[in-house]
Design a protein around this nucleic acid. Structure first.
Lengths: 376, 376
DNA sequence: CTATTGATTGCAAGCGCTTACGGGAACATC
DNA sequence: GATGTTCCCGTAAGCGCTTGCAATCAATAG
């Protein structure tokens, strides 16, 4: 039980808003507000003795120090950056790649002494109010479709912004990887192994749900830059190898889960059972594809090659052939870009490197092996 | 002449574009500030026609809508809750248990339309400024030592607070599990299997680094409620079984990593090679202990029993005998407690259930098996 | 005794916004 | 024509704080 200065019982759990403000404290002490403020923010501006008195009286009155919001208004600094995600907040914590990104970004924030505000921007709804209500000094936008209204709302705000996994947007800083080149390299690897008849499993390409095959048109007009680039990288490689890309089944899934990966793999295999490889645009999807292969009694890689993208720990454990991208570094780079506020004329663009990870889920297709042994 | 991303002329030299405010918009339109404010917050308070004009002029002037900080000051609502963690922000994303908690909390925040601010409270430094600077409507404090200055700083703030994995603190709401009972159950299980000579590996017990054996005194005065309770639960069980607890080596590690778990396990085994079981107070530590056992050529569970605590996915994969606690639910419960602001006289306390998970890393010790076969 | 100096403290002017409430105008009711 | 009623919009009073700079004063120097 706590007694306030009027002698009234004030249980802690009642959360009564303390009447004490900087002004009331000043009045109580018989000094100016300036002096009280200085006691907290510029200790060298008043005598140690007075400062001690101020702080002690503050404690006695239960004054918790200058109100952060009022201070933010006055100083025009919120001390935090906002993070906007494609997915629900809670989902982000289930995707290892997103977690890696968060980890890197959190580290950068910590180094800069800034808070990290997870903005509750539900991708299903068009409600951008959360963006408008976030008192932050900057935004990081992680992998959203280029027509996302939340992104538009962020860009309207007069604060620095960094986008990830996006093409250059309206002149703001960006960080990402060369998805197209990375996927192209992976495709060339598969082609060199002898794969020609493949299937593709990708994440959602736009904001609308389209669980199924993807038309060429949809591939080209995909609003998720990352997915579009990866598909383009694949198409380039296979076309160059003389494969008719239009005949390759590309299966899309809205939800990014292993279950989605499995069902998409099934759909691709049903469409064309002769497929020798399933190329997935994420490790999560690839892990699902592996499950489906197992369910069908297909041995990987003897009967079916499966590849992923991201290089998450789970993929490594599964021996997945995939592309590793530096998700942690991506987050960190995003933060650094945001905090490094030098005078610039042009927006900056950071491209991080990727690495083709040869695992045990890709090998020459059986037909190619047979050809090698028995001739064509 | 340059066009900024709002499409307005912005001379290269004038970096400080006077941003439009609600007042300037009102002036431009020849209406009152109230009317502009209403256009955003209470559409029913003005004619659709006027509202349209306001919003259009806003767009033309590049006014991004009411400033969130100023609005927060006025309405006394920040629209976000702060999360205080023991560890560095970035570390939190490496601990599966913490991630689960975050996931649950994030979900609750999302449902409530609130942001989640990760407060950059470095546990190494005593700098509580970050707590004072966070403009939030409430705090969730996750597993910090009871003498943590950040916790004290939070409790000074006049906002609702929920603590996790803490005993009752100063009358604020709490959510947790019965660590003592859960660990006691696990210990009884081991005792029933025949284990009497065991070693314990625990996480840090206080804010100071003490990588090594733990005195009884330190056990009792541990500032981390969770660790203290688990040790107590163990001690109770073994004392009841007639074991002299003071002879049992308890090894502490400051860093919560598998490497720490391994080295702590080594230290315990070196102290008493006759140990039949290593009881770890977290799965992460236990996974490290498994590594150390493997390194020593000890078969688990034949030569050595290893147990954990938490029930993280990795533990399940490793077949660890452990205690599963509902980390996700814990996060969600914390959020719900925070947002459910009914009038209460007493602080609420939520205890969630746990479950003993029988894995493959615990069995009867060899000596017990031999006794059974050949008699004592 | 006056000038200079350094240490302390206070003044004033907002930062950008919300909202209870009051008032005028247009229309309907009796 | 007097009295409600409804719709729109503005008045006024802050929310709690920061900060450049001026003011005060005692002490030291000249």
């Amino acid at each position: 039980m706590v007694l306030n200065r009027y002698g009234h019982c004030m249980a802690r759990s009642m959360h009564v808003r303390r009447p004490a403000t900087l002004a009331s404290l000043a009045a109580e002490l018989g000094v100016s507000r300036t002096t009280v403020s200085n006691a907290y923010n510029r200790p060298d501006q008043l005598s140690p003795e007075l400062r001690r008195r101020v702080l002690e009286t503050a404690r006695r009155l239960g004054y918790p120090g200058p109100d952060p919001v009022a201070r933010s208004l006055r100083t025009r600094k919120a001390g935090a950056v906002g993070l906007l995600l494609t997915e629900n907040l809670s989902y982000a914590f289930r995707d290892p790649a997103a977690i890696g990104f968060l980890e890197g970004l959190a580290l950068a924030c910590e180094d800069a002494g800034q808070g990290l505000l997870l903005v509750p921007a539900n991708p299903e709804r068009e409600d951008v109010a959360a963006v408008h209500r976030s008192g932050v000094d900057g935004f990081v936008v992680y992998s959203v479709p280029d027509d996302d209204p939340h992104l538009a709302a962020v860009l309207e705000r007069p604060v620095p912004t960094v986008v990830c996994d996006q093409p250059d947007v309206a002149g703001v800083d960006r960080v990402g990887i060369d998805d197209r080149a990375a996927m192209n390299e992976l495709a060339r690897h598969l082609i060199s192994l002898g794969h020609r008849r493949v299937g593709v499993v990708c994440m959602r390409l736009a904001r609308d749900r389209n669980d199924g095959f993807v038309s060429l048109d949809r591939q080209h007009s995909a609003h998720f830059h990352v997915q579009r680039s990866r598909l383009t990288g694949l198409a380039d490689a296979f076309r160059e190898a003389g494969v008719d890309w239009t005949q390759i089944p590309v299966v899309e899934r809205f939800d990014h889960t292993t279950a989605s990966g499995a069902s998409a793999a099934a759909q691709a295999l049903d469409r064309d059972p002769q497929i020798t490889a399933l190329i997935c645009t994420s490790d999560i999807l690839a892990l699902g594809a592996l499950n489906e292969a197992r369910r069908r009694g297909l041995r990987v890689p003897q009967d079916l090659t499966v590849t992923g993208f991201d290089g998450i720990p789970e993929a490594e454990r599964a021996g997945l052939t995939t592309v590793r991208q530096p998700v942690f570094e991506k987050g960190r780079a995003a933060g650094k870009l945001l905090f490094d506020t030098g005078e610039r004329s042009r927006p900056r663009s950071v491209n991080l490197g990727t690495e083709l990870l040869i695992g045990t889920t890709a090998s020459a297709p059986r037909s190619a092996v047979e050809e090698r042994w028995f001739g064509p």
